[in-house]
Amino acid sequence: MDLTLHVWRQKGPQDKGKLETYQAKDVSPDMSFLEMLDEVNDGLIKSGKDPIAFDHDCREGICGMCSQVINGRPHGKQEKTTVCQLHMRQYNDGDEIFIEPWRAKAFPVQKDLIVDRSALDVIMQAGGYVSCHTGGVDDANAMLIPKPIADYAMDAAECIGCGACIAACPNSSAMLFTGAKVAQLAALPQGKPEAKKRVKAMTEALLEEGFGNCTNHYECEAACPKGISVKFIAKLNREYLKSLLPSSTGV
C-alpha cells in the first residue's frame, strides 16, 4: 500500500518546527509502524536528507520509549498497543497519516518526534519508592499480601512510563502516571509507612514540573497502551485526603 505521511519536523528545541509531507510506497501490511518509518528514513538518507528522528528501543511494547501521536491519538489507533506493536495492516492504501510528537509544556520537543520526558523521572524521584536499604530486609514471606492486593498492585505497576496519558490529556496532567505508582505502593504493606509523605511529594513535583491538573476527562485511560485504570487516580485522591486527616499520633 502507498501512504501519505505528514510528519512533524523540528531541528532542535529552539526551532519552530512544521509538518512535512512524505510518501511511503509499497508498505507491507506485516510491517510495524516503526519499520515503515525505518523504510522512509532509508529513502531520506539515500537522497541526502535528514531522517526523521523518533524514540524507540525495545520494539516489543514494554520499554515505553516510543512516543508518537498518530492522527491525533497517542500510539495510534489500535487500543492498548504501543507504536512499536502497531502494524500497518491497521491502515489502508491511500491513507493520510499525521505523525506528531507528544505535546505538553513539560515535554519539550528535542528533535522531530523526540521529546524530553525527564519530568517523569523527577516525579518518581520525589517519592516513587520504598526507602529500604540494600540488604537487611525481612524475609519475602514475612509480610503476607493476599492475592487480590498483589494483583491490584500489579495492575498499577504495569505502567511503562511512556507518557501517552499526558499526551492525551487535554490538561497535560500526569495524574495517571503518578496515581499508578502511588496506588501500587499504598496498596502494599511495604509502601504504607511512607504513604502520606509520598502522595504529597509526588503531586507537588507534578505541578513543579509543569504538568496540568486532573479534571477527570479520563482520556489518559483510553490512551494508555497498558490499560491502566483511572481508579488509580481515585486511589491517589483518597490517599491525599487521608494524608490531610490528623492521626492519633500526630504525625
Binding site: 506528531e100 509544556k105 487535554p170 497535560s172 496532567s173 505541578l207 509543569g210 496540568g212 479534571t215 476527562h217
Partner: peptide, 29 residues
C-alpha cells in the same frame, strides 16, 4: 486558576486534535 494552569501546561495543539472519551461538558466546564 486550574483552568489557567491547564492552559499553560498545554501550549501547543495537535494538528489533528482528537479525544476519545471526554465529553463536551467536561471540556467546557
Amino acid at each position: 486558576q486550574l483552568y489557567l494552569e491547564n492552559k499553560a501546561a498545554t501550549p501547543d495543539n495537535y494538528a489533528v486534535q482528537k479525544t476519545l472519551v471526554t465529553t463536551f461538558s467536561a471540556k467546557t466546564m
